[in-house]
């Protein structure tokens, strides 16, 4: 009876554990193993030690993808986080703009594929961006944006900014709603200007929200795949590939599963470092020790 009682609680864990171990943990471990093998998915895998990693580090395409990934991370912080903060401040100062909030947040519901299709037509030579440039007189700046290096990566980072700004705005908005009235009123009575209240009272109080938003932006920047894959497939000539795109290409286009796995492991390590910070923040908030 007591044994049954002791075991019983664990039964509740089993379904979730089975799923997670079978579909997530085992594959993750297996990927690490595959990264030390040569394997085309059909033949017998062969142990080759660190060759895949050596090859990867010597491959100029890896470093291009690495550079692009870093650009993506920086771009994901700069554009959507800054814009999201500004939008949140605007909405904070203009209460009751629920519709506006919803409209800016709309891209959240759209998939990466839909967003990419939408924007790839806009970036074309005959697309909307060039159409506008023509109207406002920048005729010599007209170009097929997704074909010119490095404009293609920046163009896609801007698309991502369009996508993520609303999300960040909502996060900042929620953070702002939690700011108590007293410090603002105190500053107001002291005679501070609007600008001073904003920069010295409100923004400093957003520090913890900002930390989370920035870390999430970093993780998303590392992981970007669907926008690049649908818009350029990493091209032309791999100029706009990211680590995630390279991983997919090595594995599922040229069937070097070992090299793809080495890419995946490297990417995971990078993301993991960012994720540790993320976990520290959310665990602190969610009282993990209990």
């Amino acid at each position: 009876m007591t044994v049954v009682k002791k075991i019983k609680p664990y039964i509740f864990l089993i379904p979730a554990l089975v799923f997670v171990i079978l579909f997530l943990i085992y594959p993750a471990v297996h990927t690490i193993i595959v990264s030390f093998m040569e394997w085309n998915g059909i033949s017998k895998p062969q142990w080759i030690g660190f060759d895949n990693y050596v090859h990867m580090l010597q491959d100029p395409a890896f470093w291009i993808a690495f550079r692009n990934t870093i650009l993506w991370v920086i771009g994901s912080i700069l554009i959507p986080v800054t814009l999201g903060l500004i939008a949140a401040l605007l909405i904070y100062m203009l209460p009751g703009q629920k519709t506006i909030k919803l409209l800016l947040f709309l891209p959240y519901a759209l998939s990466g594929v839909v967003i990419s299709i939408m924007w790839s037509y806009m970036y074309r030579l005959d697309g909307a961006i060039n159409g506008i440039l023509k109207i406002i007189g920048f005729v010599e700046n007209i170009k097929p944006w997704l074909q010119v290096v490095p404009a293609n990566t920046f163009a896609m980072i801007i698309t991502n900014g369009w996508r993520m700004t609303g999300t960040n705005m909502v996060l900042f908005s929620i953070g702002m709603q939690a700011i108590p009235d007293e410090p603002i009123e105190a500053a107001y009575i002291e005679g501070s200007s609007n600008w001073q209240i904003m920069t010295r009272v409100i923004i400093p109080m957003m520090a913890s929200t900002t930390a989370v938003v920035v870390i999430m932006a970093i993780i998303n920047g590392f992981n970007v795949f669907d926008i690049v894959w649908v818009m350029t497939e990493g091209g032309p000539y791999r100029s706009s590939a990211t680590l995630a795109v390279n991983m997919y290409r090595e594995s599922f286009v040229i069937f070097k599963f070992g090299r793809g796995a080495a890419n995946a492991v490297t990417l995971s390590l990078l993301v993991f470092v960012a994720a540790i910070f993320y976990m520290r923040v959310i665990f602190k908030k969610s009282r993990i020790g209990e």
């Binding site: 074909q147 290096v149 091209g235 791999r238």
Partner: peptide, 17 residues
């Protein structure tokens, strides 16, 4: 071999641009 094709067509594209 596929590997060489994939590598070379990216290089050809680079020259085209």
């Amino acid at each position: 071999p596929v590997e060489l094709v994939e590598y070379s067509i990216d290089k050809f594209a680079e020259v085209i641009l």
